[in-house]
Design a protein around this nucleic acid. Structure first.
Ligand SMILES: Nc1ncnc2c1ncn2[C@@H]1O[C@H](COP(=O)(O)OP(=O)(O)OP(=O)(O)O)[C@@H](O)[C@H]1O
Length: 798
DNA sequence: CTGATTACGATTTTT
DNA sequence: TCGTAATCAG
């Protein structure tokens, strides 16, 4: 039943998939089937070349991509994939390090992975120890430098020699101390996972040979986003056969900020001059228009080798550019568009993705989705594992796993509150240090009541805490159970451990204490329930494995609103441009195309970073299969203050004939100054001829375009000082003359930012104002005062 | 040591 | 604007 692996592929793709042994480099633009080729290559190796799946390792960029690739490979091969390893560099390294922990200097198999917050705490301690002013040299800045060093495989000892200034000198001093503290906590950061693996493979021949044999074939997706450490790892594992198959696109390199260097692609060609290079030129994803727009953006980058890319999807919809008044209206516009395309063009929610440059932008978008009940899912971001309640419980798990994890320990000493303050904690730590026998032993001694280092109430609490930890640990790893030959011990099921933590800490009660609203309590309970569900789904993992899994997953935070739960998968996707890499959607919205946002202001001063911003937009655009919508807001609030914004300079690079909508007028408007002159809408003048008004509406749709939206600003709106001046009734201004109160009629469809869409069911005069009864589709019936309600008329009703 | 109040600072992007 | 770190009273 040899379904031909090559049948669904074009000649170039076939060439790549069926290449012989040795290095292969597939270089191609977006949507040309690189990932597909990689997946088929795995199948080809197994089925046609007779390679055992366990001798193959494929590296992807996210866990999600890994899961997807595994599913696809399974499908092609009909499940014959036992032992096939697919994962991110980080997860592959984490596993390797756990298995080879005995060869590591100062770590054991129960090592934990610290997230950014944990790292900051450790770095702060290190800087304090050095008497460095953490105001002047923030832990996160120093960490960034350390991280960059690790990505370049620069050790603490080597760092000082590359330090060029005072800051570098500080880093040079902090790095070794930080590293030492990490080791004492049996903790690694993300970069350590890579660097320690490289060091281990480099220095330990036996281990190196083992993995070179094990990973006979190595495949890397998104190769342009590897950093020095990762590439080094690839090279070491690929030797001595050099069966290394990498796919990438330099124009899609968007992770330079974490050390990725697309020049690794060029380096690959130098390192393996014999490499079989394959170029793919047909794009199967997007329309010609989308590709043209993408090209117009990326062409402006210097020092790139243009790639040929064609599609059979000629023509296509023009890219619609929309100017919204604010981020709030930008969100409303997106939602309106989505709803109308679903209603009239037969799309469903899952066909849409809304993208943005920074996570903070998601909020306004979410508000719009919530208000209308359009179901959505927010991808990535900080989300789940950063939540306080989750971090608390995970910290308990970490301490049970390894009591010497001081960062986790410090977190839970007084959570829930048990009267163990900072002083007590410090005293405890120095006591443990002085004894020099480690934390587990210290807790045991304390629990037995042998020694009490601290007097009084706090001391008593500490003893109780110690007992609890010892009991939990004993419960998790019963000592009367036999140890396995490999040194690991039998372990109580994870769910039982979880339940036991909840019970012995009384965490639920604590939760109610720390929450200010009942809703918050429910939300937090929900989160804990989700955590337990997650634990349950991985219940056969060892505790240390589970913890590693948790640390390495940035898993999409699923957040569905409005829609019926049955169609949980049919939702609109909200995600950052970074998170969008590798994905594709029929309809794509890219929001916030403003100078300062995209390109981000932090990139203004650096040409390389500006080029990366451009690539980021390029990646976003090329996610679109059929429709591309681009928007920017006229006014955007940052730090709570609404600030004027300028449309992205990138917009001017898109040829006018490929676009429709608002900013056709800024095409070719290279002179920013002149542009600014035209857009002095922040002045008080109400001359009705500003750029804002002229360039608003895009197409005939009544729901989009500022000029067609009718607003009734609330009386308490901006500008009126509410201190000494006049009574409330005095401050109620007459409604705008153009739109007298009688505007509202029974049967009208209106939209309120707060309640969503509704129908007016009653209008009553009341003094100089009107009382409106509105039945909202999702919020029930409300009665609002016309002058105080911010309503938009959706349509006049019949 | 706790709890509350205030002050400040932060925003790219992610494993 | 919002969340957390620092500060202070009890
Ligand atoms: N030979 C082919 N025939 C039909 N469809 C194809 C072919 N090759 C690829 N595709 C389709 O094209 C789309 C893009 O493929 P894929 O995601 O592998 O491209 P890619 O090069 O990895 O893209 P990107 O670099 O943007 O992530 C997918 O939907 C895929 O199924």
């Amino acid at each position: 039943m040899t379904t031909d692996l090559l049948s669904g592929l074009n000649p170039q793709q076939r060439e790549a998939v069926s290449a012989g042994e040795g290095p292969v480099l597939v270089l191609a633009g977006p949507g040309s089937g690189k990932t597909r080729v990689l997946t088929h290559r795995i199948a080809y190796l197994i089925r046609e070349m007779g390679i055992s799946p366990k001798h193959i390792v494929a590296v992807t960029f996210t866990n999600k991509a890994a899961a997807e690739m595994r599913t696809r490979a399974d499908k092609i091969l009909g499940g014959y994939t036992d032992g096939l390893q697919i994962g991110t560099f980080h997860s592959i390294c984490a596993r390797l390090l756990r298995i080879e922990a005995d060869h590591l200097d100062g770590y054991n198999r129960d090592y934990t992975i610290y997230d950014t917050d944990d790292q900051i705490k450790v770095m702060k301690e290190a800087l304090t120890e050095l008497n460095v002013d953490t105001k002047k040299f923030s832990p996160s800045r120093v960490l960034f430098a350390v991280s960059s060093a690790k990505n370049e495989l620069i050790s603490p000892a080597e760092y000082p020699s590359i330090a060029r200034d005072y800051f570098g000198e500080i880093v040079g001093r902090a790095y070794p101390i930080y590293q030492d503290r990490m080791r004492r906590n049996n903790a690694m950061d993300f970069d350590d996972l890579l660097m320690q693996t490289v060091i281990l493979l480099r220095d330990n021949e036996e281990v190196r040979f083992k993995y070179q044999r094990r990973y006979e074939h190595i495949l890397v997706d998104e190769f342009q986003d590897t950093n020095t450490a990762q590439y080094r790892l690839v090279k070491m594992l690929a030797a001595p056969q050099y069966n290394v198959f990498v796919v990438g696109d330099e124009d899609q390199s968007i992770y330079a900020f974490r050390g990725a260097d697309y020049r690794n692609v060029a380096q690959f060609r130098k390192d393996y001059p014999e490499a079989h290079v394959v170029l793919l030129e047909q794009n199967y994803r997007s329309t010609q228009i989308v590709l043209d727009v993408a090209r117009s953006i990326i062409d402006k980058n210097k020092h790139r080798t243009p790639k040929r890319l064609f599609t059979e999807k000629e023509g296509g919809a023009l890219v619609a550019i929309h100017e919204a008044y604010s981020e709030g209206e930008e969100g409303e516009w997106v939602v309106d568009k989505i709803r109308s395309m679903i209603r009239f063009n037969g799309y469903s929610y899952k066909d849409f993705a809304v993208m943005y440059r920074i996570n903070a932008q998601s909020r306004a978008l979410e508000d719009a989705f919530k208000a209308t009940g359009v179901p959505y899912r927010l991808v990535g971001g900080v989300a789940f594992y950063q939540r306080r309640e989750i971090k608390d419980i995970v910290a308990y798990l970490k301490v049970i796993n390894y009591p010497g994890d001081t960062v986790s320990l410090n977190r839970i000493f007084n959570v829930p509150g048990r009267g163990i303050g900072d002083k007590t904690v410090q005293a405890f730590h120095s006591w443990v240090d002085a004894r020099g026998k480690g934390y587990e032993e210290a807790f045991k001694a304390l629990a037995k009541g042998e020694l009490i280092p601290i007097s009084g109430r706090a001391g008593k609490s500490l003893v109780e805490f110690a007992r609890m930890i010892i009991n939990l640990r004993e419960m998790a790893f019963p000592s009367d159970m036999p140890s396995f030959a490999d040194g690991s011990t039998a372990q109580t099921p994870l769910t039982v451990i979880y339940d036991e933590i909840m019970a012995s800490t009384g965490y639920i009660g604590y939760l109610t204490e720390i929450s200010d609203t009942p809703e918050q309590v429910t939300e937090r309970m929900e989160n804990l329930k989700a955590l337990r569900g997650l634990i349950d789904s991985k219940k056969d993992l060892a505790l240390n494995e589970f913890l590693a899994d948790v640390s390495l997953s940035t898993d999409a935070d699923t957040n569905t609103t409005g829609g019926d739960p049955e169609s949980a998968n049919n939702v609109v996707t909200l995600l950052t441009l970074h998170a969008a890499k590798g994905l594709e959607y029929p309809v794509v919205f890219i929001t916030g195309l403003e100078d300062g946002l995209l390109p981000h202001s932090r990139s203004f001063t650096d040409a390389d970073e500006m080029a990366e911003e451009r690539r980021l937009l390029y990646v976003g655009i090329t996610r679109a299969e059929q429709h591309l919508f681009v928007s920017y807001a006229f006014r955007r609030s940052l730090y709570g203050e609404s600030m004027p914004s300028i449309p992205s300079r990138f917009l001017a690079d898109i040829p006018a004939e490929l676009t429709e909508g608002a900013p056709t007028k800024i095409k070719g408007m290279a002179d920013r100054q002149a542009y600014r002159e035209m857009t002095r809408w922040d002045s008080d003048s109400d001359d009705g001829d500003s750029f804002a008004r002229r360039s608003s509406s895009d197409n005939g749709s009544s729901s989009s375009g500022r000029s067609k939206i009718i607003y009734f600003d609330s009386a308490a709106g901006r500008g009126s000082s509410n201190s000494s001046g006049g009574s409330i009734s005095k401050r109620t201004p007459p409604p705008p003359p153009a739109h007298p109160p009688s505007k509202y009629k029974v049967g009208m469809h209106v939209y309120s930012p707060k309640w969503g869409e509704g129908i007016i069911i009653d209008v009553r005069r009341s003094g100089g104002d009107e009382e409106l009864s509105i039945r909202f589709s999702s919020a029930g019936t409300k009665t609002l005062m016309a002058s105080f309600a911010t309503l938009r008329i959706v349509n006049q009703g019949e």
